[in-house]
Amino acid sequence: NQASVVANQLIPISTHLTLVMMRSEVVTPVGIPAEDIPRLVSMQVNRAVPLGTTLMPDMVKGYA
């Protein structure tokens, strides 16, 4: 099972991601792979992401 990136807190819209905001967890459905966490740092979310939500490629500007 592959770990995905999950929000560690509420991430407001247009926030630049930091390591503190993300954790890796095995979830269904599978989202952005956990090994991409370093790549996600300083990218922006294009919507509010609630605590515990799996980050999907379409939620992060410039990821997909």
Rank of each mutant, 00 (worst) to 15 (best):
M22W: 03
M21I: 03
V20A: 15
G62T: 06
D58L: 11
V20G: 12
P12W: 04
V30T: 14
Y63V: 04
V6L: 07
L51P: 09
M59G: 03
H16S: 14
I37D: 00
V6K: 03
V20H: 15
T54C: 05
M22K: 00
T53R: 13
Q2L: 10
S24G: 15
M59L: 04
V45I: 07
L17W: 02
A48E: 14
A48M: 15
Q44G: 04
V41G: 00
N1Q: 12
S4K: 01
V45F: 02
M22G: 00
Q2W: 11
K61M: 14
A48C: 15
V6D: 02
S24Y: 10
V60K: 00
A48F: 10
P57N: 05
E25N: 09
T15N: 04
P57L: 05
R39I: 08
S24W: 08
M59Y: 12
P29H: 05
L55E: 02
V30Y: 14
L10Y: 14
V5N: 02
R47H: 07
Q9N: 05
M56R: 08
A64D: 13
L51W: 11
A3P: 12
M56S: 06
M43L: 11
Q9I: 11
V41P: 00
D36P: 01
L10G: 12
S42N: 15
S42T: 12
I37R: 06
Q44N: 04
P12N: 07
L55F: 13
V49G: 01
E25M: 13
Y63D: 03
A3K: 08
G52Q: 01
P12M: 06
N46K: 09
K61P: 09
E25G: 12
V30P: 13
Q2E: 15
Y63M: 04
L10Q: 15
E35H: 11
T15I: 06
R23N: 05
V6W: 03
M22H: 01
V6A: 02
V6Q: 03
N1C: 07
T18I: 05
I13D: 10
N8F: 04
M21S: 03
L19C: 11
T15E: 08
S14Q: 12
D36L: 10
V5I: 11
V5P: 01
V60Q: 00
V49F: 03
N1H: 12
L40K: 00
R47W: 06
E25I: 06
P38M: 09
M56F: 09
V27G: 03
I37A: 09
H16Q: 12
D36F: 11
D36V: 07
V26F: 14
V60I: 11
S42R: 10
K61Q: 15
R47I: 09
G62M: 09
G52F: 05
Y63W: 15
E35Q: 10
N46E: 08
G31T: 01
M59W: 12
N8P: 01
V49Y: 03
P33T: 07
P33M: 06
D58H: 10
R39M: 10
R47F: 07
H16I: 14
L51R: 11
N1E: 15
N1A: 15
Q9C: 10
V30W: 13
P12H: 09
V26L: 12
Y63P: 04
E25C: 11
G31I: 00
Q44H: 08
I13H: 14
Q44S: 13
S24P: 12
G31S: 02
Y63N: 03
R23M: 05
A3H: 09
M59P: 01
N46F: 06
V45S: 05
N8Q: 10
I32M: 03
A64C: 15
H16P: 15
V26P: 08
L40P: 00
R39Y: 11
P29I: 06
V20E: 09
N8H: 06
M59V: 07
A3S: 12
Y63T: 03
A34V: 10
A48S: 15
T28K: 07
M21A: 03
V27D: 02
T15Q: 08
P50K: 11
N1S: 15
R47S: 10
P29D: 07
V5L: 03
V20Y: 14
K61E: 13
H16L: 13
G52V: 02
Q2I: 12
I13E: 15
T15G: 06
Q9H: 08
P12G: 07
V30D: 11
I13F: 14
G52M: 04
Q9P: 00
A3Q: 11
T54D: 02
P50I: 05
M59A: 08
L10F: 13
S42E: 07
D36K: 09
I13Y: 15
P29M: 05
Q2K: 08
V41T: 05
G31C: 03
I32V: 07
R23C: 05
V30Q: 15
G52H: 08
T28R: 05
A48W: 10
Q44D: 02
V45A: 05
K61I: 13
L51H: 12
S4M: 02
V20N: 10
D36Y: 11
T54M: 03
Q2Y: 15
M22D: 00
K61G: 08
R39A: 10
P12Q: 07
P29K: 05
L51I: 12
I37Y: 03
A64Y: 06
V30K: 08
I11Y: 03
L19P: 07
N1M: 15
V27E: 03
D58F: 11
L55I: 12
T54S: 04
A3R: 07
A48G: 09
V26T: 12
L17R: 00
D58Y: 14
G31V: 02
D58G: 12
N46I: 15
T28G: 06
P38G: 12
P50Q: 10
Q9Y: 15
I32G: 01
L51E: 15
M56W: 05
H16Y: 14
G31F: 02
R47G: 05
P38D: 13
N46H: 09
L55A: 01
I32Q: 01
V6F: 02
K61C: 15
L10D: 14
P38Q: 13
L10P: 10
V26S: 10
G31P: 00
V49P: 02
V60G: 01
Q9S: 11
P12V: 05
A34C: 08
H16T: 14
T54E: 02
M43R: 09
I37S: 03
E35K: 08
Q44V: 14
L10I: 11
V41Q: 06
P57Q: 07
V6E: 01
A7S: 11
R39K: 14
E35Y: 10
V41F: 05
V5E: 00
I32N: 01
N46D: 10
G62R: 06
P33K: 08
I37Q: 05
I37F: 02
L17N: 00
A48L: 14
E25T: 06
N46Y: 11
V30I: 13
L19V: 06
T53G: 11
S42V: 04
G52E: 04
G62N: 12
V60W: 03
S14Y: 14
E25P: 01
